[in-house]
Design a binder for these strands. Structure first.
Lengths: 163, 163
DNA sequence: GCTTATTGCTAGCCAGGCTAGATACTTTGG
DNA sequence: CCAAAGTATCTAGCCTGGCTAGCAATAAGC
């Protein structure tokens, strides 16, 4: 089961790389594009600051990212309706088309695969994945390398130290 | 269910980043280290060529990677027993300790989570993940996309070359 | 009306990929 | 055995995509 999980992870990673290169952009840029489109679909506005936060990159890197995606014709910068320091990032029709073209079918097929899971097993699948995610959220935040002497049983820590 | 899958993916990615930075290295280097240790555990020898193949990076990049991990005291280069062009990459005791310290507990806990899945649902979980992985393997390789704008010029190496 | 916080941008740096070419060794064919 | 071709690693130098520091413009608080 863990092996299947690992295989999924690798396949997912590879797929992302392929889709990105297929669209002549890198993985982060594709993530950004999807974020912008999702924001539009949700009736919200996407700002550079929001992108930076979502992607865990700096605002400076976000500026460069917007330059790339604007130059490639996927995004446009438009004035923010209320905050004149900021701006609104909008996906072009081309970007919408391209993302739909590349991802809609895949998502549909993924939903199909999900539906193929026997309904009595679905809660187990979900619980498995959620428990795994929750566990991983607590792992890895061990800032000071301990001298290997005591396990110290650090449980229940989660604060994600990125900064 | 798909949402849970997505959450797992994000958590996994984050965890990898945290573990890596916690060990003062990047994600690729950690992957390399695990590969070397796994090879040792399997009674095989790890070569730079093997690393390059496993990590989907060039041999030149692998040389740099080995330089980093050798300098940091995680790996050593040793002569290859049969092929004198090549060499064998060996993890230091320190690397073994560090990886065990960081990952053993996590893996154990993951196995626990897997065991918590009702046995009658396990085949469904596995099948779901395998089907998803198999599907993702077939996605993304869509070269023929009608150009809605300019094909972005040929000199643009806008993406990493993949093996 | 000032002062402070925040937003996005510019400038310049660095890590970690890449390709090309050099070197050393192995394999293969006569 | 020797030459040619193939393979493994390393070096040199480039590019992308992150980063921090600092700026002008605007917003928010006193």
């Amino acid at each position: 089961m863990l092996e299947a999980l690992r295989r999924f992870r690798l396949a997912d990673q590879d797929m992302r790389a392929r889709i990105s290169t297929g669209m002549h952009m890198n993985v982060t840029d594709l993530q950004a594009l999807r974020y912008v489109i999702a924001a539009e679909a949700a009736g919200e506005v996407a700002t550079p600051r929001g992108l930076a936060t979502h992607l865990h990159i700096s605002t400076a890197s976000t500026t460069k990212l917007l330059d790339r995606l604007t130059r490639s014709g996927h995004l446009t910068r438009e004035p923010h309706p209320t905050d004149r320091r900021s701006l609104v990032v909008v996906a072009t029709a081309h970007a919408h088309d391209e993302v739909r073209e590349r991802l809609a079918r895949m998502h549909e097929r993924m939903a199909e695969i999900a539906r193929a899971v026997p309904s009595e097993s679905r809660p187990a699948v979900e619980e498995f994945l959620r428990a795994m995610a929750a566990h991983l959220d607590t792992e890895g935040d061990v800032p000071p390398l301990r001298p290997l002497t005591e396990p110290a049983a650090t449980n229940g820590r989660s604060a994600r130290g990125r900064g």
